[in-house]
Each structure stands twice: as C-alpha cells, then as structure tokens.
Design a binder for these strands. Structure first.
Length: 642
RNA sequence: GCCCACGUAGCUCAGUCGGUAGAGCGCGUCCUUGGUAAGGACGAGGUCAGCGGUUCAAUCCCGCUCGUGGGCUCCA
C-alpha cells in the first residue's frame, strides 16, 4: 500500500503494517515519542494494522490530538487504579480536558483528596508495569453483557445511546480494567509516567442537576518530567497571583461577606486603579469617535418587555416596585442607548452613531457561580453601541476590532479571534432573516480578512440575535480569558423599530452592533492583577512613589520633593515612620510601589535622591530631576489610539 | 440553584478527647535617628460566623441559616 507523509513524501508498505512500524521506519526517536496515528483523517491506535493507501501523520505529545490521547489514556489509568482500590466504584466518563483530564466515579464513602496518595501509588505501579491498552470491537449484546455483569449502569446508558446513534462499540482493556471507549489510546502505561492528581469535585452525571452527583477526580499528565514540573509551577504561580488574594492584600477591593455575595467594594487604592483605567477608556473612546452617554440603573419593566430581556432573562433580573409600576435594575445597557437613539428622528448623515457608557449592570447570578471579580452580581460593562447603515458595516467592524486590539496591546495581552456564526440547521434558534445573517457574517469575515487577522470560524456559537467576534486574551501565564466581544444584533432594531432616513427620504432599518472591550471593568482589573502579578503598570499604580527620609532631619526635604511630585500629578507619599529604612523599604516593596526615593543627609544637602525601583532594586544616587524624569517616564499614560 | 469541604483576633493559622482560647504578622504607645526586603519593649484586640437544640456546662456534639472555597450548570 502507498502511504503519504505530511512532508508529501510517499512510501510503499505491505498491507497490515502498523503506525508504530511506520514510525520506526522513519526514525527511532519518532517511534519512541509516537502516541497515536492519524490515518486518512481518522485517529487510530499505533498498533492498528493499516490496510489501504492513505495519508499518515504520526502524532506525539506536541500535537494537540496526541496530547489529548495521552491525557485521556491517563484517565483510564486512574480509573483502573480506582477499580482496584475501591471495588464498589462505578464508572462515569473520563475525557481529556484543557491541560489534563478527569474521571467521574460513583464511589460510596470516597475519602476525598486523602485517597490521592494511595491511588497515585497504584497508578505509578501500573505505569511501571508497561501494561498495554488493548482495543476490542464488539456487538451491542456482548458489550451490554460485559457492563451489565459489572453493574456499570452509567456505561450501559452510554451503550444505549451509541446503539440509538447507530455507532459501533469498542472497549479498551488495561490490565484488569475494561472500559467502554472510542479511543484511540497510547500503546501502554509506560507513556503515563509523568502525571499528577490535582483535585476532586462533585459533578452531575451528564452535567444534569437532576442526575446523581458523581465524584470527579482531576489530574494532568505530560510527556516529560520537565513539562509536568513546569505546568505544576505555573499552577503554583497562578495561585500566588490570584486576584482574590492580591486584591485585598494590596488594598484594592473586597467582595462579598457582609457586603453581600458577588458585590464589590472598591477601597481607596483600588478606586484609583479603576478611575485611571476608566478615564483612559473614556478619552480613547472620544478620540475614536464615540459619544459618551449615561443612563439610569433602573428602568420600567415595559422597556425590558419591548427589548425581549424580560422574556428570556428575567430569572437573572432584580425587580422593584415603584409607585404603581414595576421597575427592573438593568442587566444590560442596550435599552438605555436605544432610548437615546430614538430620542429624535435620525438621518443617514448622523451615522455611524457610536454611543458608549461605562454602565453598571446587575445580574442575579446563581450563588454557586460567583468567583472573585471574574463573576459578580454587579459589574460595569464598558458598553458601546454602534448604529450604522449596511454599507458602513465592514468599516465599523474593522474600526472596532482595531480599537479592541489597541487595548490589549496597551497591557501586553496576546489574543486569538473567533468568529461565531449561526448554525443553519437550526434556523428557528435565531432572530432575523438568514439572508441578512449571511450578509453580516461575510462582512465580519471580510473585515477580519482585510485587517490580515487570523481567526477561527465557529458554527453554532452565535447568539440568537446575531453573529459575533470574540477575542480571547492571553495573559502572562499563557492562560486565555474572555476578552473583547463584538456582537451584531438583528433583534433589537426590529423590536424597537430603529430606523434612519436615507438619502432617498425613506425610512430604513438601522444596523446595530454591541461591543465591550474590557467586557467588564471588574473582571478586566482581575485579569490585570493576575497578568501583572499585582505589579500594575506605573500609570495604574495606586502609589507611584514613596519618599523615605532616612532620619527625621530629612523630613523637610522630603516634603519639598513631595510637593514637586504632587504638582506633576504623581501619586506619592512620605513614609517617615519611626522604623528602620530596611523595614520601610520592605513595606514599599511588598506593597508593590514602583518607585522609592530614599533621602539621607548626603542627598538632602545636594538636591539628590537615591532611587530604588520595585523589583529591580537600588539604582543609586542621582540628581532629583533625573529621578523625576525616570518616574514620569515610568508612569506615563498610554498613547491614545490613532 | 445543586454536591462536597471549610468558617477561631484586621491577616495567616494553632488549640480545646465539652470546663468561654494562643502564636506570628498587622495595629497602638514608648525606646531606637537607623543607608536599600523585618531594631527592641510593652499593650490593646476574640459572643471561637449567626440562630436554635442536647448537656450541670458548647468554640468543640446535633440541626438550621449566612458566608467562603472546589466543582456541575451558566456567563461580562
């Protein structure tokens, strides 16, 4: 048979040759690192004999699919160990996930994390034994018989579904453990040496809260000890950077407690960060052609009925009685901006009209989903709505995407772009006409193409009211977060009958785009804290300079310098506490103050300061002006967009 | 909302097999005038999350509530 390789070379092999043998034919190293094989687009075990001509790719841990196979295989190793140690356990599913895997078990009286040592020991033992993963294909009756005998009710449920879907059944045997599984798997447990069990959690069978709660065990596995260690170190680092820990520590904010779950209280230092960020946002928006507006926190319930929020979002809304009517706290800003748009008859000459607001919204999120600043019940959407004509769509989208990327660049975030499209097999899920969707979807794609941006189209990810562009931002630890989102809306212009008068004197339906660049100011600040490990850029730092007179004799000089800095709008303070210099420096360092001016007798006499920079250490004595220049450069606000 | 775990001083935590509690940091006062990541002494500070129950006695045992964390689901 003729086998094509990714480098488009071609080789002849005897029918029945396995992927592993072909890998070995290429190089010993590839055979050693090979995990699975992709043959004519199908993922197969390495020991699967190949019987026809085709394209082959030997996959290792470097390939996403190889990585998944390794992780999924490790979940079987985990399940095998659990079966051995807890014979009464019943098994759910055990897929690979981003950065690892999990397996769901029904284990009566599972002791929790304290069982990890024993389970890990058993897994290590089996990993050493080099036990092969053996694939078996079988009929439904045989599979049902196997799992019925074991009392595996969850597996039986899965088999039924396979039967209904008309799919075949395969199982994998790993030593004494047999599991229903599509595969593929790595050849044997010897590939599974570098794993670690991480945590346990409850999870409903099939994610449905009406089902029983299973015990989920999370773990991760890598191809080498080095990569595993690096990943674990990253997790440690992430824990250290957790904004829920750093925020209160740095005096930025507190959340929840007696103040109410999911509600944020910004402390003085945090308020400075917020205001700086918001001021820059406002200036940038004005520069980019937006008009700032401000709308109330409550609005009559009728408005929410017109917008449609009442019918599909009311479980997440807070209501209040006012006079004889009912009001709602706004969960979104759009209806407010609609009222402003509709305030007068609009002409095509006014379009595109871009309205923007840092609007606080309130949503009744389930108590269990609240998470630091990332998921709260009251937050500020950096909202904007663009009203435009059809001809203006491509240009407006380009402008918004460029604007969004501008903000990510300020903070050195990486990014990746997704274009969420409608699923044309479920047209009834969407508002608006399919032809209109088609026009706009291609306009969004065209805008991205013309900008030369890479993006991933995702069918079925669009919201019911329109297609959207989502930008995921990548932080310093390589983690992706929900970033800017740009959403088209076919629903609201129709519901509110939003029109403009065209050059032909006729009314036309306006096109509308929602966009949020930070998403939520609260969440974005949470991201910034973790991205920078609390060491915010100078312009956002609540304290920019601490002046440290070595003895009280330099206090007067310190005050003189403080006044100079204050006139330059530098946020500075004097720490003249009766503590040693070392102590006060430590305090400023742990407080992550970017700059310290240390003034002793020598400096005070000669109008000099000794400059210390956070994270860098002592920069030595210099002229006051020079130190001020360094501070001003370090605290300069970002350039506005072009 | 659901499942599991947790809740002791401002913070991080110890402790009490049921007899109302301790450390370090922080805070206050005093001493110390010190040169680049913790000088010293003394002191204040706790209804042991809240409410009920069991008990001669509850911070500890039981129940409920609230809050927090890990997940499920959801999401800016």
């Amino acid at each position: 048979m003729r086998i094509n390789f990714p480098d488009s070379s071609l080789k002849e092999y005897e029918a029945g040759t396995t992927g592993l043998e072909i890998a070995g034919d290429i190089s010993e190293g590839l055979a050693r690192n090979a995990l699975i094989v992709k043959f004519n687009g199908k993922l197969l075990d390495l020991d699967e004999p190949l019987r026809e001509d085709g394209n082959i790719e030997i996959l290792t841990f470097r390939d996403e699919e190889g990585k998944k196979a390794l992780r999924h295989s490790c979940s079987h190793l985990l399940a095998g160990a659990v079966q051995k140690l807890y014979p009464s356990a019943r098994f759910g599913i055990g897929p690979s996930i981003e950065d690892g895997f999990y397996y769901d078990f029904d284990i009566p009286d599972f002791p929790g994390i304290s069982a990890f040592e024993e389970i890990t020991g058993e897994m290590k033992r089996q990993a050493k034994e080099n036990i092969p993963f053996v694939r078996k294909e079988m009929g439904f009756e045989e599979a049902v018989a196997i799992f019925k005998e074991k009392g595996e009710k969850y597996k039986l449920e899965l088999i039924e579904e396979l039967r209904d879907a008309g799919e075949s059944v395969s199982v994998y045997q790993l030593g004494e453990f047999i599991d229903l599984c599509r595969g593929p798997h790595v050849p044997s447990t010897k590939c599974l040496k570098y794993f670690k069990l991480l945590s346990t959690a409850g999870a409903y069978w099939r994610g449905d809260e009406n089902n029983e709660m299973l015990t989920r065990i999370y773990g991760t596995v890598f191809d080498s000890s080095k990569n595993l260690k690096e990943h674990l170190a990253m997790l440690e680092e992430a824990k250290k950077r957790d904004h829920r820990k750093l925020g209160p520590e740095l005096g930025l904010f507190i959340i929840g407690g007696s103040g109410g779950p999911g509600l944020t209280y910004w402390l003085p230092a945090g308020t400075i960060v917020r205001e700086e960020l918001e001021n820059h946002w406002k200036k940038a928006h004005v520069k980019s052609g937006y008009q700032l507006v401000s709308t109330p926190h409550i609005a009559p319930v009728e408005l929410w009925k017109t917008s449609g929020h009442y019918s599909y979002y009311k479980d997440n809304m807070y209501f209040l009685d006012v006079d004889k009517g009912q009001y709602a706290l706004k969960p979104m800003n759009c209806p407010g901006h609609i009222i402003i748009y509709k305030n007068s008859k609009r002409s095509y000459r006014e379009l595109p009209m871009r309205l923007a607001e840092l609007g606080m919204v309130y949503r009744h999120e389930k108590s269990g989903v609240l998470h630091g600043l990332m998921r709260v019940r009251g937050f500020t959407v950096d909202d904007g709505h663009i009203f435009c004509t059809e001809d203006q769509i491509v240009d407006e989208i380009k402008k918004v995407v460029r604007f969004a990327l501008y903000f990510l660049k300020i903070f050195d975030f990486g990014y990746s772009i997704e274009l969420s499209l409608m699923d044309r097999e479920h047209l009834d899920h969407y508002a608006g006409e399919p032809e209109e969707w088609g026009k706009v979807e291609s306009a969004l794609g065209k805008a991205l193409d013309e900008m030369g941006e890479d993006y991933r189209p995702v069918v079925g990810e669009a919201v019911f009211y329109g297609p959207k562009i989502d930008i995921k931002m990548k932080d310093a630890l390589g983690r992706f977060w929900q970033g800017p989102t740009i959403q088209f809306d076919f629903n609201i212009p129709q519901r509110f009958n939003l029109t403009y008068v065209g050059s032909d004197g006729q009314d036309h339906r306006v096109f509308m785009v929602h966009r949020a660049l930070f998403g939520s100011v609260e969440r974005f600040i949470g991201n910034l804290i973790e991205h920078y490990a609390g060491n915010l850029p100078g312009w956002l730092a609540p304290h920019q300079v601490v002046i440290l007179p070595i003895t009280s004799s330099q206090l007067e000089k310190a005050e003189e310098i403080e006044n100079i800095l204050a006139d330059l709008e530098v946020r500075c303070s004097i720490d003249a506490r009766s503590e040693t210099v070392g102590y006060r420096i430590r305090d400023a360092e742990t407080g992550k103050v970017p700059f310290m001016f240390i003034i002793g007798e020598r400096e005070a006499e000669s109008n000099r300061v000794s400059l210390r920079i956070h994270g860098e250490g002592d920069r030595g004595s210099m002229e006051l002006d020079e130190a001020i220049d360094i501070v001003m450069a370090g605290c300069r606000r970002p350039e506005l967009p072009e």
